[in-house]
Simulated scan of single mutants.
Amino acid sequence: MIILMIIGMSLATMLPRVIPAFIIEKMQFRPWINKWLSAIPYAALGALIFPGIMSVKPDEPHHGIIGGLVAIVLAYLGLNVILVVLGAILTVFLLSF
């Protein structure tokens, strides 16, 4: 009985996440919508990371601000989101020495 409940809960969680991926793949959007949708990962990343930027090192807040500026520049250059995050982390790491 417990196994059936686990399978049911996993399906209830998985289906709403998987179905939109198949639906959106077949849809064609206007170019301005595609441009707006491509900005969403960077906007979400900014909303999640900004509080951390301000509190990287409480006694030296300029480390986080410089790391955030590096992330902005890398994102503006169009790098992959993972490379943007790694660049900011590396900058703060190097400034901490």
Rank of each mutant, 00 (worst) to 15 (best):
P20S: 12
G67D: 03
S96H: 11
V56W: 13
L48K: 02
A88R: 05
P31W: 03
L74F: 14
V81G: 00
N80W: 03
L77Q: 09
K57H: 08
I53A: 07
N80M: 01
F93Q: 11
K57F: 11
P58G: 14
G52F: 13
P61K: 04
Y42A: 12
H62K: 12
K26L: 07
K26N: 13
L48G: 14
V85P: 00
S38M: 10
F50T: 15
G87F: 05
W36V: 10
I24M: 12
A88V: 07
I65W: 06
R17V: 13
L11M: 15
G68E: 06
G64Y: 08
I2G: 12
S10P: 00
A71M: 15
Y76D: 00
G67E: 05
T13I: 15
L83T: 00
I40M: 13
S10Q: 11
R17Y: 09
A88H: 02
V56S: 07
F29W: 13
P31C: 02
S96C: 06
F50C: 13
G87L: 02
I33R: 02
L83C: 08
G64W: 05
F29V: 05
V81Y: 01
L74P: 00
V84L: 02
Y42E: 03
I72N: 00
G64M: 06
A39F: 10
G87A: 11
V56C: 05
N34F: 01
V81M: 13
A71F: 03
R30N: 12
R30K: 15
M5Y: 14
G64P: 04
